[in-house]
Design a protein around this nucleic acid. Sequence first.
DNA 1: TCTGGGGTCCTAGGACCC
DNA 2: TCTGGGGTCCTAGGACCC
Length: 411
Amino acid sequence: MELRTILHIDMNAFFASVEQSANPELRGKPIAVVGGHGRTVITTSSYEARVKGVKTGMAIWEGKRACPELIIVFGDNKKYTYTSTRINDIFRDYTPDVEAFSIDESWLDVTHSLSIFGSAVNIAHLIKARIKHLFDITCSIGIAPNKLLAKLASDMQKPDGLTIIEPENVSRTLEHMLIKELCGIGKKMQQHLNMMSIYTCGDLGRCDETRLAKKFGIIGKRLKEMGQGIDHSPVIRYGKEEDLKSVGHSMTLERDIDYPVEIQRFLLQLSEMVGSRARRYNVSGKTIQLYVRYADFFSSWGKQTTLKQYINLSDEIYRAALCVLNTVELEQPVRLLGITLSNLKHHSEQLPLFEDERKKIFATQAMDSINDRFGRMSVTFGTLLPGKEKAGSHVIPPSWRPDGIKSVDVQ
DNA sequence: TCTGGGGTCCTAGGACCC
DNA sequence: TCTGGGGTCCTAGGACCC
């Protein structure tokens, strides 16, 4: 196995940094970026807010309780997408092997660029300087022999950090590192491992593989490797990603709803959001999942159905979702609704043969392009128009990828 | 005015076919 | 007629990431 040099670059408080950079009045102040006006949570907060205890996932009132002078900023996806795309362009000046893990994180395989730019540290400094100069945003960079360790390294110093894990220092670094710091080990996995007296990566790396396999099945081997800092996964360059597997939207409603007609109206809206995106990606799917969260927040369910044929027109999706809904008896008012299209087929552009089908596609495309230009739901089906109820938030999450097929997803 | 939204992967169990 | 096994597809649910 060839020795690689991988960078992981993590934009610090990305959405908040973009807002502070765009608006001088916000600089140096505690701000929180939120997704919508209704029942929403803080997506990102500035470091000034974080030191006061404001955290991602808090409700707005919680954030204000922790920090009364907190400034609430409503997120602007286009700004973040634009900035993220430009930043990834910068990365590609140093290597074509750039993988966007999310809107604010990327991996770079610079193995074959070292001779040109001197060293990985040099590349890191160049990148930091350019991002700071162009966007007034800082980032934390990790340099390591693989993706797992590079990501771990970028997390070790924030904000504006630069951390290097040399191959010869891997085991020393991991010996006392808590397992939850590894990307892939969450709360539940940590609990399970702790019960096996495994607390640090050192513990995990020394653990008997068959013991791990017995408890965790096929990921047992992988877990041991993670504990040892082994990761062979390649940096997947832009355009070489795996095909999209599902397209979904969900929304928490401004208030809990009960009436079938109202529920249907939101389902139609979700169907249109899912359908228009599926069509833009040039995919259709034959499995439709309906997801419902009840008013009590804790109880929820998902139910899916698989059709004989692939679909991506909004009204087809709507009809399928309605069929699923009709198989259940709602037990409570509804807080959140979601629709996901999966079992996808990717196709190259090809118009169906029959005239009426062609017309339907053209009409749909016209509607999609108007929605693209003037904002989601400016043109939609008739039943949506009366009332014009506002949906939940549409701010993209930090996990949203700026690259490839997903780059056209600006709303 | 409690608690968002977009994904991926894995498992377990059942139906169905050969 | 009984029994077993492999493969595929499906649904439901959970864990994980940002």
